[in-house]
Amino acid sequence: MVTETLLEAELRRVAGSVPDPELPVLTLEELGVLRAVHVFGPGRVEVELTPTYTGCPAIEVMSTDIERALHEHGIPEVSVRTVLSPAWSTDDISAEGRRKLAEFGIAPPRPQPTDGGPVPLTLSVRCPHCGSTDTELLSRFSSTACKALRRCVSCREPFDHFKEL
């Protein structure tokens, strides 16, 4: 394991503070998609980014945004490389990220079962509006690939749930 230099740590903070293009309340660091920042020479940096879903169209915007942020920080040569392994999981979303999602009206993902596959639907998802755990699934797929659509039985509000992956 190569240790991160002070400069790499600083650049990681810059790249990590870029907001997610589809969920701007989250930063890329909180989403857990920023894997590493390597400095290869003066002004030459490579960033490793992992997609949430294989088909996630946001990854291209994320790359451009990271490049812009690092250019503004004085790094002229930035390349963003997509890495698949180890696969991203909703467990990579930080505690702060989960708190922000709930505040934004999106139920955060539940912790993953250890045997893989979809989380059993018996585990309750809390309504981000009224806090009730009496909620029901409307559709496993919602406005983006990473979300499911649910409805709160108590307050009747529909809401997005960041589904477990």
């Binding site: 997609p51 879903y53 294989t54 088909g55 996630c56 169209p57 698949l84 409307l138 559709s139 496993r140 797929f141 919602s142 406005s143 983006t144 690939a145 659509l149």
Partner: peptide
């Protein structure tokens, strides 16, 4: 509408696999 969204999301996952 929910199925429209679901099928499009599945298609998008598959397209991501295809691109890689």
């Amino acid at each position: 509408l929910e199925e429209e969204v679901a099928l499009a999301n599945i298609a998008l996952d598959l397209l991501g696999q295809a691109r890689i």
